[in-house]
Amino acid sequence: MIPELQFSRPKTIREALNLLATPGQNNRILAGGTDVITGIQMGSKRFSRIDLLIDINQIPELKTITENKAHIIIGGNVTFTELIENPIARQKLPLLVKAASTVGNLQIRNRATLTGNFVNNAPCADSVPPLLVYDALIKIESQNSGRELPLQDFLTGTYKTLIKPNELVTEIRIPKADTELRGDFYKLGRRKSVAISRISLAVLAQIEEDKIKEIRIASGAVTPIGERFPDLEKWANGQKISDELLKLLAKKMAEKITKANGLRWSSTYKIPVLQQTFYQLLKKVTD
Protein backbone atom coordinates (compact mmCIF):
# COMPACT_ATOMS: atom_id res chain seq x y z
CA MET A 1 0.00 0.00 0.00
CA ILE A 2 1.30 3.42 -0.97
CA PRO A 3 0.14 6.23 1.31
CA GLU A 4 -1.01 9.54 -0.07
CA LEU A 5 1.85 11.76 -1.11
CA GLN A 6 2.80 14.72 -3.26
CA PHE A 7 4.66 14.23 -6.48
CA SER A 8 6.79 16.50 -8.54
CA ARG A 9 8.74 16.22 -11.79
CA PRO A 10 11.43 18.90 -12.03
CA LYS A 11 13.01 19.56 -15.44
CA THR A 12 16.37 20.82 -14.19
CA ILE A 13 18.81 20.00 -11.42
CA ARG A 14 18.26 23.45 -9.97
CA GLU A 15 14.51 22.86 -9.79
CA ALA A 16 15.06 19.51 -8.12
CA LEU A 17 17.37 21.02 -5.53
CA ASN A 18 14.84 23.73 -4.76
CA LEU A 19 12.16 21.11 -4.23
CA LEU A 20 14.48 19.10 -2.01
CA ALA A 21 14.90 22.18 0.10
CA THR A 22 11.16 22.48 0.79
CA PRO A 23 11.17 22.92 4.55
CA GLY A 24 9.13 21.09 7.17
CA GLN A 25 8.47 17.88 5.26
CA ASN A 26 10.06 14.64 4.17
CA ASN A 27 11.22 15.04 0.58
CA ARG A 28 12.61 12.07 -1.30
CA ILE A 29 14.19 11.57 -4.67
CA LEU A 30 12.52 9.05 -6.94
CA ALA A 31 14.82 7.75 -9.67
CA GLY A 32 14.21 4.18 -10.88
CA GLY A 33 11.82 3.47 -8.04
CA THR A 34 12.97 -0.12 -7.73
CA ASP A 35 14.06 0.41 -4.13
CA VAL A 36 11.77 3.28 -3.17
CA ILE A 37 8.47 1.88 -4.44
CA THR A 38 9.18 -1.67 -3.26
CA GLY A 39 10.30 -0.24 0.09
CA ILE A 40 7.04 1.67 0.45
CA GLN A 41 5.03 -1.39 -0.68
CA MET A 42 6.70 -3.64 1.88
CA GLY A 43 6.27 -1.10 4.66
CA SER A 44 9.98 -0.47 5.12
CA LYS A 45 10.76 2.05 7.84
CA ARG A 46 13.34 3.62 5.56
CA PHE A 47 10.61 4.78 3.23
CA SER A 48 7.82 5.66 5.61
CA ARG A 49 6.15 9.06 5.91
CA ILE A 50 7.29 10.53 2.62
CA ASP A 51 5.53 13.82 1.92
CA LEU A 52 6.97 14.63 -1.47
CA LEU A 53 8.47 12.37 -4.09
CA ILE A 54 10.69 14.19 -6.55
CA ASP A 55 10.89 12.26 -9.79
CA ILE A 56 14.18 13.18 -11.48
CA ASN A 57 13.52 11.28 -14.68
CA GLN A 58 12.77 14.41 -16.70
CA ILE A 59 16.15 16.03 -16.08
CA PRO A 60 18.30 15.55 -19.19
CA GLU A 61 21.47 16.79 -17.43
CA LEU A 62 21.41 13.71 -15.22
CA LYS A 63 21.20 11.27 -18.12
CA THR A 64 24.54 11.78 -19.86
CA ILE A 65 27.72 9.75 -19.98
CA THR A 66 30.70 11.79 -21.16
CA GLU A 67 34.45 11.84 -20.86
CA ASN A 68 37.16 14.42 -20.67
CA LYS A 69 40.89 14.02 -20.37
CA ALA A 70 40.85 12.99 -16.78
CA HIS A 71 37.44 11.50 -16.08
CA ILE A 72 34.52 9.53 -17.31
CA ILE A 73 31.45 11.32 -16.04
CA ILE A 74 28.20 9.47 -15.48
CA GLY A 75 25.07 11.49 -14.83
CA GLY A 76 23.30 11.01 -11.55
CA ASN A 77 20.27 9.33 -13.10
CA VAL A 78 21.73 6.90 -15.60
CA THR A 79 19.96 3.54 -15.60
CA PHE A 80 21.77 0.23 -15.71
CA THR A 81 20.49 -0.38 -19.22
CA GLU A 82 21.77 3.01 -20.38
CA LEU A 83 25.12 2.24 -18.82
CA ILE A 84 25.36 -1.24 -20.34
CA GLU A 85 24.54 0.09 -23.79
CA ASN A 86 26.85 3.10 -23.65
CA PRO A 87 29.97 2.78 -25.84
CA ILE A 88 32.20 4.76 -23.48
CA ALA A 89 31.18 2.65 -20.50
CA ARG A 90 31.52 -0.59 -22.45
CA GLN A 91 35.02 0.32 -23.54
CA LYS A 92 36.40 1.94 -20.45
CA LEU A 93 34.46 0.54 -17.52
CA PRO A 94 34.11 -3.16 -18.28
CA LEU A 95 33.85 -4.22 -14.64
CA LEU A 96 31.04 -1.80 -14.02
CA VAL A 97 29.20 -2.88 -17.17
CA LYS A 98 29.60 -6.51 -16.19
CA ALA A 99 28.24 -5.84 -12.72
CA ALA A 100 25.39 -3.76 -14.12
CA SER A 101 24.43 -6.65 -16.41
CA THR A 102 23.89 -8.89 -13.39
CA VAL A 103 21.53 -6.52 -11.58
CA GLY A 104 17.99 -7.87 -11.16
CA ASN A 105 16.25 -8.50 -14.45
CA LEU A 106 15.75 -6.45 -17.59
CA GLN A 107 12.66 -4.64 -16.30
CA ILE A 108 14.65 -3.62 -13.22
CA ARG A 109 17.72 -2.57 -15.20
CA ASN A 110 15.54 -0.47 -17.47
CA ARG A 111 14.53 1.62 -14.47
CA ALA A 112 17.08 1.21 -11.68
CA THR A 113 19.98 3.64 -11.65
CA LEU A 114 23.62 3.38 -10.80
CA THR A 115 23.30 6.22 -8.32
CA GLY A 116 20.25 4.69 -6.72
CA ASN A 117 22.19 1.49 -6.20
CA PHE A 118 24.83 3.11 -3.99
CA VAL A 119 22.60 5.70 -2.38
CA ASN A 120 20.43 2.82 -1.18
CA ASN A 121 23.69 1.09 -0.20
CA ALA A 122 22.50 -2.44 0.37
CA PRO A 123 25.29 -4.88 1.23
CA CYS A 124 24.65 -6.64 -2.05
CA ALA A 125 24.65 -3.52 -4.29
CA ASP A 126 26.31 -5.00 -7.34
CA SER A 127 27.72 -1.81 -8.78
CA VAL A 128 29.57 -0.75 -5.64
CA PRO A 129 32.64 -3.03 -5.76
CA PRO A 130 33.47 -2.01 -9.37
CA LEU A 131 32.93 1.67 -8.59
CA LEU A 132 35.23 1.34 -5.60
CA VAL A 133 38.08 -0.22 -7.56
CA TYR A 134 37.63 2.47 -10.19
CA ASP A 135 38.17 5.01 -7.39
CA ALA A 136 34.87 6.66 -8.24
CA LEU A 137 34.18 10.16 -6.98
CA ILE A 138 30.71 11.55 -6.61
CA LYS A 139 29.40 15.05 -6.93
CA ILE A 140 26.64 16.02 -4.54
CA GLU A 141 24.65 19.20 -4.76
CA SER A 142 22.14 20.99 -2.65
CA GLN A 143 20.29 24.27 -3.10
CA ASN A 144 23.15 26.31 -1.70
CA SER A 145 26.25 24.20 -1.94
CA GLY A 146 28.00 21.30 -3.56
CA ARG A 147 30.76 18.91 -2.74
CA GLU A 148 32.76 16.18 -4.32
CA LEU A 149 34.05 13.16 -2.43
CA PRO A 150 35.26 9.62 -2.99
CA LEU A 151 32.43 7.12 -3.11
CA GLN A 152 34.28 5.11 -0.51
CA ASP A 153 33.92 7.96 2.02
CA PHE A 154 30.26 8.48 1.10
CA LEU A 155 29.24 4.93 2.01
CA THR A 156 29.11 4.71 5.79
CA GLY A 157 27.11 1.62 6.71
CA THR A 158 24.43 -0.79 5.61
CA TYR A 159 21.72 1.37 3.99
CA LYS A 160 23.60 4.43 5.28
CA THR A 161 25.50 7.14 3.44
CA LEU A 162 26.56 10.73 3.99
CA ILE A 163 23.72 12.10 1.88
CA LYS A 164 21.65 14.79 3.56
CA PRO A 165 17.92 15.11 3.01
CA ASN A 166 18.38 18.19 0.82
CA GLU A 167 21.10 16.70 -1.36
CA LEU A 168 21.19 15.09 -4.78
CA VAL A 169 24.00 13.05 -6.32
CA THR A 170 24.44 14.69 -9.69
CA GLU A 171 27.53 12.98 -11.07
CA ILE A 172 29.79 10.03 -10.74
CA ARG A 173 33.32 10.82 -11.87
CA ILE A 174 35.66 8.00 -12.61
CA PRO A 175 39.31 8.94 -13.01
CA LYS A 176 40.91 7.55 -16.13
CA ALA A 177 43.84 5.29 -15.43
CA ASP A 178 47.10 6.38 -17.01
CA THR A 179 48.30 2.81 -17.28
CA GLU A 180 46.71 -0.37 -18.45
CA LEU A 181 44.74 -2.10 -15.74
CA ARG A 182 43.43 -5.62 -15.85
CA GLY A 183 40.52 -6.68 -13.82
CA ASP A 184 37.29 -8.53 -13.45
CA PHE A 185 34.05 -8.62 -11.53
CA TYR A 186 32.63 -11.74 -9.93
CA LYS A 187 29.19 -12.37 -8.53
CA LEU A 188 27.76 -15.44 -6.87
CA GLY A 189 24.00 -15.78 -6.62
CA ARG A 190 21.60 -18.58 -5.91
CA ARG A 191 20.14 -18.54 -9.39
CA LYS A 192 21.69 -17.87 -12.78
CA SER A 193 19.72 -14.66 -13.06
CA VAL A 194 17.62 -12.30 -10.98
CA ALA A 195 19.82 -13.25 -8.07
CA ILE A 196 20.77 -11.29 -5.02
CA SER A 197 24.53 -11.42 -4.54
CA ARG A 198 25.85 -13.84 -1.96
CA ILE A 199 29.37 -12.75 -2.77
CA SER A 200 30.59 -10.04 -5.13
CA LEU A 201 34.17 -9.13 -5.87
CA ALA A 202 36.00 -6.65 -8.04
CA VAL A 203 39.69 -6.62 -8.76
CA LEU A 204 41.70 -4.16 -10.81
CA ALA A 205 45.43 -4.61 -11.15
CA GLN A 206 48.44 -3.28 -12.92
CA ILE A 207 50.73 -6.16 -13.68
CA GLU A 208 54.31 -5.71 -14.72
CA GLU A 209 55.94 -8.86 -15.94
CA ASP A 210 55.51 -11.25 -13.04
CA LYS A 211 54.77 -8.65 -10.40
CA ILE A 212 51.70 -6.97 -9.05
CA LYS A 213 52.57 -3.32 -9.48
CA GLU A 214 49.31 -2.12 -8.07
CA ILE A 215 46.15 -3.92 -7.09
CA ARG A 216 42.72 -2.69 -6.03
CA ILE A 217 40.31 -5.04 -4.34
CA ALA A 218 36.68 -4.56 -3.35
CA SER A 219 33.99 -6.84 -2.02
CA GLY A 220 30.23 -6.79 -1.65
CA ALA A 221 27.66 -8.94 0.15
CA VAL A 222 30.33 -10.56 2.34
CA THR A 223 30.86 -7.23 4.06
CA PRO A 224 28.20 -4.99 5.61
CA ILE A 225 28.66 -2.67 2.62
CA GLY A 226 30.88 -2.70 -0.43
CA GLU A 227 34.45 -2.14 0.76
CA ARG A 228 38.00 -1.65 -0.42
CA PHE A 229 40.91 -3.40 1.28
CA PRO A 230 43.76 -0.85 1.45
CA ASP A 231 45.96 -2.85 3.85
CA LEU A 232 45.74 -5.94 1.70
CA GLU A 233 46.37 -3.96 -1.43
CA LYS A 234 49.45 -2.36 0.12
CA TRP A 235 50.66 -5.78 1.23
CA ALA A 236 50.25 -7.23 -2.25
CA ASN A 237 51.68 -4.33 -4.22
CA GLY A 238 55.11 -5.09 -5.55
CA GLN A 239 54.92 -8.80 -4.80
CA LYS A 240 55.85 -11.45 -7.28
CA ILE A 241 52.82 -13.32 -8.57
CA SER A 242 52.69 -16.91 -7.46
CA ASP A 243 50.02 -19.40 -6.71
CA GLU A 244 51.02 -19.18 -3.10
CA LEU A 245 50.69 -15.41 -3.03
CA LEU A 246 47.20 -15.48 -4.48
CA LYS A 247 46.07 -18.10 -1.99
CA LEU A 248 47.53 -16.12 0.85
CA LEU A 249 45.86 -12.96 -0.40
CA ALA A 250 42.53 -14.75 -0.51
CA LYS A 251 42.99 -16.07 2.98
CA LYS A 252 44.10 -12.70 4.35
CA MET A 253 40.99 -11.09 2.92
CA ALA A 254 38.78 -13.64 4.63
CA GLU A 255 40.62 -13.14 7.91
CA LYS A 256 40.27 -9.41 7.64
CA ILE A 257 36.56 -9.57 6.95
CA THR A 258 35.99 -12.01 9.80
CA LYS A 259 38.02 -9.91 12.20
CA ALA A 260 36.15 -6.75 11.28
CA ASN A 261 32.63 -8.18 11.26
CA GLY A 262 32.67 -11.32 13.35
CA LEU A 263 30.89 -14.49 12.33
CA ARG A 264 27.35 -14.18 10.97
CA TRP A 265 24.76 -16.81 10.18
CA SER A 266 26.07 -17.10 6.67
CA SER A 267 29.79 -16.98 7.43
CA THR A 268 30.20 -20.73 7.63
CA TYR A 269 29.47 -20.85 3.94
CA LYS A 270 30.62 -17.47 2.75
CA ILE A 271 34.05 -17.25 4.34
CA PRO A 272 35.50 -20.42 2.77
CA VAL A 273 33.73 -19.81 -0.54
CA LEU A 274 34.96 -16.23 -0.61
CA GLN A 275 38.51 -17.51 -0.42
CA GLN A 276 37.97 -20.01 -3.20
CA THR A 277 36.22 -17.60 -5.52
CA PHE A 278 38.59 -14.73 -4.82
CA TYR A 279 41.48 -17.07 -5.57
CA GLN A 280 39.80 -18.09 -8.84
CA LEU A 281 39.28 -14.45 -9.72
CA LEU A 282 42.88 -13.51 -8.91
CA LYS A 283 44.13 -16.41 -11.02
CA LYS A 284 42.06 -15.18 -13.92
CA VAL A 285 43.19 -11.57 -13.60
CA THR A 286 46.88 -12.38 -13.16
CA ASP A 287 47.01 -15.18 -15.71
Binding site: K247, A250, K251, T258, S267, I271, P272, V273, Q276
Partner: peptide, 14 residues
Protein backbone atom coordinates in the same frame (compact mmCIF):
# COMPACT_ATOMS: atom_id res chain seq x y z
CA UNK B 1 33.88 -26.91 4.14
CA UNK B 2 35.51 -27.66 7.45
CA UNK B 3 33.24 -25.83 9.88
CA UNK B 4 35.93 -25.94 12.56
CA UNK B 5 38.34 -24.00 10.39
CA UNK B 6 36.86 -21.59 7.91
CA UNK B 7 40.24 -20.40 6.71
CA UNK B 8 41.68 -22.49 3.96
CA UNK B 9 45.01 -24.23 3.90
CA UNK B 10 47.02 -24.05 0.73
CA UNK B 11 45.88 -27.49 -0.30
CA UNK B 12 42.21 -26.64 0.14
CA UNK B 13 42.24 -24.22 -2.78
CA UNK B 14 40.92 -25.85 -5.89
Amino acid sequence: IDEENLFLNKDDFV
